[in-house]
Design a protein around this nucleic acid. Structure first.
Lengths: 249, 249
DNA sequence: TGACTTATATGCATAAAGCTTCTATCTAAT
DNA sequence: ATTAGATAGAAGCTTTATGCATATAAGTCA
């Protein structure tokens, strides 16, 4: 910083504007039993008491947005090392009845088996709800969450956040490697296709899907085969990031 | 709002967290003479004095993010009625030396001829700088702004914002109708192709481009032809939004 | 051993996209 | 009036991606 900049700072009044609160919300998704799923927390306090909310938290004054998202992932969702990507910032004036809160939504992806521990210790305030998308393709719009015993009412604008996350996921699935964040390290091409079908909500053609995945160069055959299959075991593949950094954001 | 929520609000302390400032920055782009261009404002105050910055402003406590973006478009960029879309939120702790400022970047598009009035009245503090993208395809990364007399140094993280805007634009150009926001109401297919080539930074095949545009059903022939052309005048087309709402976000 | 089921490969039809070439239509020069 | 020059626009061929049907391979289990 230059000397003149330092001088400037001493005369600057940062209290000139009334400031909103800034939060991050996490759309932590997975694919469970052939359907997209999202991690929700039951609200025990007002507002929106007893509704279900995305894990979130306020952004600290000395904390970057990305750091806040990872902190929420750790502390509220009890997970670590997920694929995390900023999604959209929700800034309607009345989106939270308490006060003005601007929320930066992040979406995060983890394979289904990574949720088991967190859900066990949660004593019912955490749940991995099925996501019910009622629009075709990439139409967009809010989506609902469904638990074991029916629909789970979502707090605030969380249905919109969830809808936008599904939209983004559908859009990125085919030209980026996000899909692999939903699978364990070793997987069969059938599992990969199941994940794609769950996210997209459509059936895909098997030979074409397989060809496309292999042609993209994202997957690497291991020579190993799955075990415990009732019939012919499929070959196990591994995700192989492209050497050329040629992915969209 | 329920009675219990009202009761809750009376006991809630909104001053619990130290809050960051929230701003919006506008990447207002166009295509001028076959090259992408962006509207910049010369900074006359510290910090980053004499550097060039994207038009921006703080978000009012009773103002939505989208409303703030449109206000900046009107007041700082002196434009109205542009295509405006939220891009990304920049939240690094030290991105502004004055204080913690989280900035929600919006990108906006206007045809080149719409800038003339604003630039005339601006007495040199506004400029429409050429955007120099040095990465191919959708690699991503910061990009530079170039004025009449060479590079224009950008303030803060504005080069990153500009880079992300170019990336998003490249990504959306082919499957969404954003390209038409850069053209006047009536345009030739050649003009449309020129815009696409400027944004993408590559030459496109003419017959293929024409077929694709016509097949998508986005353009509508008017029967009119351009005037003043030195040779055979091309037919004028008009943008025709699809009846089915089938666009990605 | 053979029926059953899924994995994997192959061949064909269709559709989209790139490339080349041809024709049409205007201006401007002679 | 005629023609050269330049671009618009159309048509045909080739290549490539994708959908679909089918054949073969490789396991389990009765």
């Amino acid at each position: 910083m230059t000397d003149t900049e330092t001088q400037f700072l001493q005369t600057y009044d940062p209290a000139e504007y009334e400031r909103p609160s800034v939060a991050v919300d996490l759309i932590l998704m997975s694919v469970v039993d052939g359907a997209p799923a999202v991690l929700l927390i039951r609200r025990t306090e007002q507002p929106a008491k007893d509704k279900w909310a995305l894990p979130g938290g306020f952004v600290g004054i000395d904390e970057s947005l990305d750091a806040a998202a990872h902190r929420v992932l750790r502390e509220k969702a009890r997970m670590d090392d997920a694929y995390v990507e900023q999604l959209y910032t929700f800034g309607a004036v009345d989106r939270d009845p308490r006060m003005r809160i601007i929320s930066v939504a992040y979406f995060a992806l983890l394979p289904a088996d990574r949720y088991a521990a967190a859900l066990k210790n949660s004593s019912g305030d955490l749940t991995l709800a099925r996501v019910a998308v009622h629009w075709p393709g990439e139409t967009g719009g809010p989506v609902a969450a469904v638990g074991e015993d029916g629909p789970l009412p979502l707090a605030f604008d969380n249905a919109d956040m969830l809808g936008l996350a599904m939209l983004r996921l559908r859009g990125k699935l085919d030209y980026s490697s996000v899909g692999f964040a939903l699978l364990p390290e070793y997987f069969t091409l059938r599992q990969l296709q199941d994940v794609h079908e769950a996210i997209l909500g459509v059936q895909l053609n098997k030979p074409a899907f397989r060809r496309r995945m292999l042609d993209k160069g994202w997957v690497e055959a291991t020579g190993e085969r799955e075990i415990g299959a009732s019939f012919r075991p499929a070959e196990l593949y591994r995700f192989k990031p492209l050497s050329q950094a040629s992915e969209r954001t």
